[in-house]
């Protein structure tokens, strides 16, 4: 067993884990963050995507011990003070989810995508979500939601960047 200290969704945890424990299993089974889910065992599907120190990772490819001393944000830590994160709101308003199983990972990856590229083209959104699989939506409304979230968030470089897009959240 190894002792780790991790901040998850703003709360500090110190736990003993087996060295082989994956971060996703630690989050689900020891911290109780069952909003983050497992969809495959080959790091293809991205359902388990969380943020590690603000950047997206597939939590099935990170050992819990590797997250020692770091901050993890899960889908459950996004909404603050009863307010949905703009990306959560955009997914809702654009019908970007059906069964919802891929949704936590998809939202976490989408936030990271806009962090890296605040004003993406449709193709850049599609390429940026390549590591997250969805079987229900056909992706069209997910892409629409990400573009809408980008349009709703003024960027430093071009505050008017989103004016030409449809499906905004205003």
């Amino acid at each position: 067993m190894a002792r780790i200290s991790i901040e998850v969704d703003g709360v500090g945890y110190s736990d003993d884990v087996e060295p082989r424990t994956l971060l996703v299993h630690y989050l689900r089974e020891q911290v109780g963050k069952t909003g983050t889910v497992v969809g495959c065992d080959t790091s293809n599907c991205g359902a388990c995507t969380v943020h590690l120190d603000g950047a997206s990772v597939k939590s099935c490819t990170v050992l819990a011990v590797q997250a020692d001393g770091h901050e993890v944000t899960t889908i459950e830590g996004l909404a603050t003070g009863g307010e949905l994160h703009p990306m959560q709101q955009a997914f809702h308003e654009n019908h970007a989810l059906q069964c919802g199983y891929c949704t936590p990972g998809m939202i976490m990856q989408s936030i990271d995508l806009l962090h890296d590229n605040p004003d993406p083209t449709e193709q850049e959104v599609r390429d940026g979500l390549e590591g997250n699989l969805c079987r229900c939506t056909g992706y069209q409304n997910i892409v629409k939601a990400v573009l809408a979230a980008a349009a709703a968030t003024p960027t430093h470089s071009d505050a008017a960047a989103g004016t030409g897009r449809s499906g905004g959240t205003a």
């Binding site: 689900r28 069952t34 909003g35 889908i75 997914f91 019908h95």
Partner: peptide, 19 residues
């Protein structure tokens, strides 16, 4: 109509069997 079921699914308040 926007979907009623979305709120729990976009916030991770879900009840999958494995949970």
């Amino acid at each position: 109509r926007l979907r009623k079921e979305d709120q729990r699914l976009i916030t991770g308040r879900t009840r999958w069997t494995d949970n």
